[in-house]
């Protein structure tokens, strides 16, 4: 006989006591906290990621500038966008389509990562 079987009667008493507990409020409470934590995590990842991507994007012209074989139009376009961002942040998106494309890709990637990310 297994040792555990020696106290089946007591185990049944404990189990009967446990069955009296109402699971619904507890499960709802736990899952509410899980969802809040997940949302908070996604917001933090998205926020930090966006800032990081913005900082990285600002370094692109410098990086490409030292790379002679890269098409100069990309470098000049980003540099122009950078300057415009400093002067006319509100008009940026309408004046440089390449910048819009880069920003869209960054936002799309970050959104995908943040959405797939689990707590």
């Amino acid at each position: 006989m297994r040792e555990e079987e020696a106290y089946q009667d007591l185990a049944a008493l404990f189990a009967a006591e446990d069955r009296k507990m109402d699971p619904k409020p507890f499960v709802a409470g736990v899952m509410g906290k899980v969802r809040r934590r997940t949302l908070r995590r996604k917001l933090v990842i998205f926020g930090v990621g966006t800032v990081g991507a913005a900082v990285a994007a600002l370094q692109v012209p410098k990086l490409f500038g030292e790379w002679i074989t890269v098409d100069n139009t990309i470098v000049s376009a980003i540099s122009t966008a950078q300057q415009q961002a400093g002067m006319q942040a509100g008009l940026l998106s309408t004046t440089n389509p390449l910048w819009i494309g880069i920003a869209a890709m960054v936002v799309f990637s970050l959104a995908a990562v943040a959405t797939m990310e689990r707590a």
């Binding site: 006591e17 446990d18 507990m21 699971p23 507890f26 499960v27």
Partner: peptide
């Protein structure tokens, strides 16, 4: 959570 809550809470 629903399956194991009674055991863990107990």
């Amino acid at each position: 959570v629903r399956r194991h809550q009674a055991r863990v809470r107990g």
